[in-house]
Design a protein around this nucleic acid. Structure first.
Lengths: 339, 339
DNA sequence: GTGAAAGCGCTAACAA
DNA sequence: TTGTTAGCGCTTTCAC
């Protein structure tokens, strides 16, 4: 590793004191002569001494490093969460190391090994899409690694979890459509084997019930996050003799595909048909018209995850894992009508 | 740091051999009895032994960690570059630690300290917008830290650099406008104190010259990345009696603001006016109409940066820093006319 | 082929 | 208040 950096030994020699004195001065321990301390600090400054955190970690058996592993960070979602994590972690004097699994179980396992080898104190984890075997995770937990899960939650695994209230988000979105005069509201639904797919559908259904609107099977389309399908189903909806006056999409990419289809049919949003997305892709504000969407508190997700982890780190085995569910917020733009 | 993890000592005791033998077996050193080795590896497996990289780093005085510091990673640009970095780094058995300066010089300095303390082997760095004093960087370099710069380049600083050919990108964009029949092409320009601002303007000017179109001062607008200004200047352009038939914007946010303004004036893109952006915001493909834009090879930028750094790490003081300039590519979508 | 021992830079008893 | 010493987990001579 490059040139020799100065060590406490170098300082000790020059000042003709022992290395423990230097160490004490540097850590402002109580039992130290102010004079000595001053001299040490000045020389350290002069030499541009940087403590070797590797040695300290080894000695103290404590790295003060939190690991974060996400499937990807090309979309805005995870970077924003990480921002929140870093905020809290840095304030508590933890460093954060970030790895990404590229949605590959293999890489996830490999990275987890690396994290263990680097002796991270705890892990904040969003598993990959294809992670269905949790052996590596369980084994890490068994070795005492605290893990906080977010975004992709596995109910079976122990540990704290941070999630978003998809049900409430969906409910609010549909409620807004109803309150702005829509009466035939279709849902471009997600996969029903995923929690978010189910919860968002339930929010949609319950909003209709609450406002005593009929539920029609023919208005619920299983788009399932699949690109081609959304277009097809949207077209089918538009072809209905009694076509819907609003679409609630399970997420923004789905909503955007619907939007394109609607516009190609020569219809206007929101005059002919209102549209609400979910999860706030960064560009949903920039398309034409800017899209009303349910946004998740990404920053907050990160903050909560970091806080839970650090609490667990501090409290040790006394800590009982918690699950935090954060509300999503409807951001009203121009793809829905005015109230 | 959590529960005790097994060490080579645990393995040695159980196998009744010395720790050096275990160490040798684990690193598949040459001088080792295959039998012994097998036994060690099996037990290691069974105990789920993870080498303590901290100890190894301390002993070998080598961390195999590359630091990356970027101003932010909320927009797609830096995450994509980091992807490229990680690809190369992982293949070469380096770990990557990522920090972000949040465009703050203070944090940049602080993070650099932390990187030095963590004894990263080298650094890939995009400085903040406000970094005008390079003392901290120079000092790190003087201590032997190899640094590769990208995105925000400072000519004065030594070290390898990876940049994008802004001039060529701008030239290609304007050439495309000309070849699709535009004749009065305006430029929404960036700050002329920044290299990218100047280079993109020059590309624009030279394309006009090459195709023998007149250069008109009144068509070059100093939008300078400032939000309100772009709208104002675009409106001014549209108000000209002989209004331009194309706009080349210094970057995508500027282009998008112009787009909104154009549409509010009831004009169509590209029928009334063509529009080209630069630097490919992730959403430029999703707006209406999808925007023609000059895209940067983000992945490649990362790969080059990592390769340069690792070469420097391997070659040591023999290494002579290099500057790599990568071409940008015009992606033709629907905001410009057909050829 | 294997073991003993030193030491990477630092902290924390313990002694003085 | 300061110094001496052991040792964190590992690698690497140097003996045998």
């Amino acid at each position: 590793m490059r040139n020799k950096q100065p060590t406490i030994w170098d300082i000790a020699i020059k000042l003709n004191v022992s290395i423990s004195t230097v160490s004490r001065a540097l850590r402002n321990a109580p039992d130290i002569n102010p004079e000595t301390k001053k001299a040490v600090l000045e020389l350290a400054q002069e030499l541009d001494y940087q403590p070797n955190t590797i040695a300290t970690s080894l000695r103290k058996n404590k790295t003060n490093i939190i690991g974060v592993m996400v499937p990807e960070f090309v979309h805005a979602y995870f970077p924003n969460v990480i921002l929140g994590i870093q905020e809290v972690a840095n304030a508590e004097d933890y460093k954060v190391i970030i790895m990404q699994s590229a949605e590959s179980l293999e890489i996830e396992k490999h990275n987890l090994q690396a994290m263990m080898s680097s002796r991270v104190e705890g892990l904040i984890l969003a598993i990959t899409r294809e992670t269905n075997d949790y052996g590596h995770i369980i084994s890490a937990q068994r070795k005492g690694l605290p893990i906080v899960f977010f975004n992709r939650i596995v109910d079976e695994l122990p540990g704290s979890k941070v999630m978003v209230n998809d049900y409430q988000g969906a409910f609010t979105a549909v409620e807004h459509l109803i309150q702005t005069g829509c009466r035939r509201i279709a849902h471009l639904a997600g996969p029903q084997n995923l929690t978010i797919g189910r919860n968002r559908l339930n929010g949609y259904l319950d909003a209709l019930k609450t406002y005593q609107l009929p539920i029609e099977e023919s208005l619920i389309m299983p788009c399932n996050f699949e690109e081609g399908k959304t277009r097809m189903y949207t077209q089918a909806l538009l072809n209905q003799t009694n076509r819907p006056d609003a679409l609630f999409a399970v997420n923004d990419p789905t909503a955007i595909e619907a939007l394109i289809c609607i516009q190609e049919n020569g219809m206007n949003i929101p005059e002919h048909i209102s549209l609400v997305g979910f999860s706030n892709a960064p560009h949903s504000a920039f398309i034409t018209p800017p899209m009303t969407s349910v946004v998740q508190p990404l920053h907050e997700i990160g903050r909560h995850a970091a806080e839970l982890l650090i609490r667990q780190l501090n409290e040790g085995t006394h800590f009982i894992p918690e699950t935090h569910t954060l509300d999503a917020k409807l951001v009203i733009r121009k793809s829905t009508r005015k109230a």
